[in-house]
Simulated scan of single mutants.
Amino acid sequence: MTMWNNLLPKVHFHPILLLFLLISFFTGTFMQLAILLFIVFFHELGHYIMALQFKWRIKKIMLWVFGGVMDTEEHGTRPVREEVLVICAGPFQHIVLYVIALVAVDTGVISSSIFDTFMYYNTTIFIFNLLPVLPLDGGKLLQLLMSTKWPYKMAYYRSIYFSLIACLFLLGTSLVVQPFTLSTFLLCLFLLFENKNEWKKRYYVFTRFLLKRFETRHNPIGRTRSIRVKAEKSLLEVFSHFYRGWSHNIHIIYPNGSIKLMNEYDCLYWYFEAKRYKDTVGDLGDLTNNTK
């Protein structure tokens, strides 16, 4: 039983999904909703199976009527290649579903009407999930791309800004350009709500990124990048220059023009272990050099 508990995901249903299930019983659309949920779950299963291969910590899978979210602690703490594979595993499942559906209709397992409905929903969800909006797969891929060009904190914040603007654009388009539909309106509201939550936990996500680097100090990153900061800057201001996939040498510039060197681990040690939150990097640079 323990083995199965570790292998099978914990699946939760969003309250909105329960509302749609109730509506589908009274409107005669339960078959369409069942097809939609199957596609969504199969999509999330792709993320889940790939994440298991890399031993990710997975809390649960949350399903709602238009998609799902795999709740994990690993985003931003794993190599970019690893995260790309986990993200792309979801959209890849739709290609598998195309093949399954074609075989099923050719062998008479499903009718042509169910096949048409299945293909429509599969294509819609496939394209929708590639939109560059968090927490969709397209938004996560955009965030990863940004993190290869900018420091992690800047890339993370900008991806949320972009997602919020895109959500507002989609909401405005659904209200003004296209005929109003409740499903589109709820979809836009859901995406706005998710990005609002993402913004609220931005400090926690950034701290998790830093803590992971501190915990894996005995497995240093091969590439090194230099950072030049003024002595009066705080540790958090130094950390805002950290890139994922790089280790950092910090060159501290003092008012008299002298320069002292600290490595990334020293800064993280002073922050997480010594808890010197309010000290400037210049003061800690003096302490570091005096104790060595």
Rank of each mutant, 00 (worst) to 15 (best):
K196Q: 10
I61A: 04
L52Y: 02
D106T: 06
V65M: 02
I227N: 04
T173Q: 07
Q178S: 11
F54S: 01
G90I: 00
T27C: 10
R78N: 02
F272V: 01
C167A: 08
L19H: 08
K275E: 09
Y271I: 03
E83I: 09
S183L: 15
L52F: 00
Y156P: 00
V281A: 01
R57D: 12
M262D: 08
F206H: 12
G68S: 08
I125C: 05
G67K: 02
L18P: 03
L18G: 08
A101Y: 04
F66K: 04
L102I: 10
H12L: 08
Q178W: 11
Y269R: 07
M62F: 01
Y161D: 14
L236G: 07
V177A: 13
I100A: 12
N249V: 13
Y157R: 13
I165F: 13
K153I: 05
Q53V: 13
E215I: 12
S258C: 10
V176R: 08
Q32Y: 11
N122W: 02
F239G: 03
G108E: 11
L18N: 08
K196F: 12
L130H: 02
L189R: 05
V229E: 03
Y120E: 10
I95P: 00
S234M: 15
S111F: 10
F180I: 14
I221S: 08
K153V: 05
K260G: 06
S183Y: 11
Y98G: 00
I110C: 08
N122G: 06
T107F: 03
W64N: 02
H248W: 12
C267G: 12
L8M: 14
L287F: 15
K140P: 13
G138T: 13
T184P: 09
L268S: 03
A104L: 09
H218P: 01
N289P: 00
A104V: 05
A89G: 07
K230I: 06
R213T: 03
I23M: 14
K200E: 12
V105Q: 03
V281W: 11
T72D: 00
K278D: 14
P151N: 13
S113M: 11
G90M: 05
P255T: 09
P135A: 08
F209L: 08
L134A: 07
S226Y: 09
S147H: 10
D106Q: 09
G76Y: 04
L131S: 04
M62Q: 03
M62P: 04
K60E: 15
L168N: 06
R228P: 01
W246L: 10
R57G: 09
W4G: 03
W150I: 00
K292C: 04
R217K: 15
T27G: 04
F41A: 10
F180S: 08
T148A: 06
S247P: 03
F193C: 06
L186D: 05
I87F: 01
E73I: 01
V65Q: 00
Y157Q: 12
W56K: 00
L21Y: 08
A166I: 09
